[in-house]
Computed example of a mutant assay.
Amino acid sequence: MRIVVADDEAMIRAGVRAILASDPDIEVVAEAADGREAVEMVRAHRPDLALLDIRMPKLDGLAAAAEIRRLAPEVGVIMLTTFGEDEYIAGALGNGAGGFLLKSGDPRELIAGIRAVAEGAAFLSPQVARRVINELARGGGRMSRAAEARQRIAGLTGRERQVLELLAGGLSNAEIASRLHVVEGTVKAYVSGILTRLAVRNRVQAAIMAYEAGVVDGLA
């Protein structure tokens, strides 16, 4: 897995590189000190994944994530940040990030998150996942969101709904393929179709919609 690491603090970049060096399957191909440079590094190196801080000069991580997803939609994006405020989480997921990790988390979460997103799954730090679920559960508009989610999901085929349930359960494309006894390329095609039918930008948003609709346990 080829990674671009972007953070405006050199010590953080060095620490991240040291953690990633513990996994022989991960290679840091470039580093960036600001969001604009991160976009250029992705353009130049076409990595598998970009690991972005949120608060960076020239272009913040949220804007950089959106630009990277526009420029190279095949590149996964993970936010690695000190800031776990709701607006940052919502902004990151809305801009297509497949993962949101806190710098205060266990270093093993970083490796797990990179592996998950690289394999086509989504990954949130446990603290972030709890905030997302709690916010959805207590939100004043939960009933209307649930009704809209159910309406959109009703348009899926039976197989697409199966894939959505497994996706929302945190399974990667390879794991879904194994569970359904199909090839991984077929799962990728189903996931792409699901995102289009649900009018969402990434797997995290699709999973949230599944929870809102009661397709999987957790919020219904």
Rank of each mutant, 00 (worst) to 15 (best):
I89A: 11
I111K: 11
D48A: 12
R55W: 02
A174V: 06
M11D: 10
V182T: 12
Q162L: 12
S144W: 06
A112K: 11
A65K: 02
A207K: 04
R201H: 05
E184H: 02
M56G: 10
R108L: 11
D7L: 03
Q205M: 14
L195N: 05
A65L: 02
R161W: 03
L62I: 15
L110W: 09
V204D: 00
D53E: 12
D86Q: 13
Y88M: 10
P107K: 11
G170I: 02
A72T: 04
Q162K: 14
I208H: 01
D34N: 15
V29K: 02
A210L: 07
R55G: 01
V77A: 08
D34Y: 07
Y190I: 00
N95S: 15
R161T: 14
D106M: 02
M41T: 00
E148N: 12
P47Q: 07
A129I: 02
L124E: 00
M11E: 05
L59I: 06
A97H: 06
L124H: 10
H45D: 09
L52Q: 08
Q205I: 07
F83Y: 15
G99D: 10
I89R: 09
T81E: 05
V16D: 08
I68F: 04
V4I: 13
V5R: 08
L198A: 05
V5Y: 08
G170D: 04
I54C: 05
G105N: 14
L93N: 04
I133Y: 07
H45K: 14
V183K: 14
M56H: 08
R69H: 08
A38T: 06
D106P: 06
G218S: 06
G84R: 06
R150F: 01
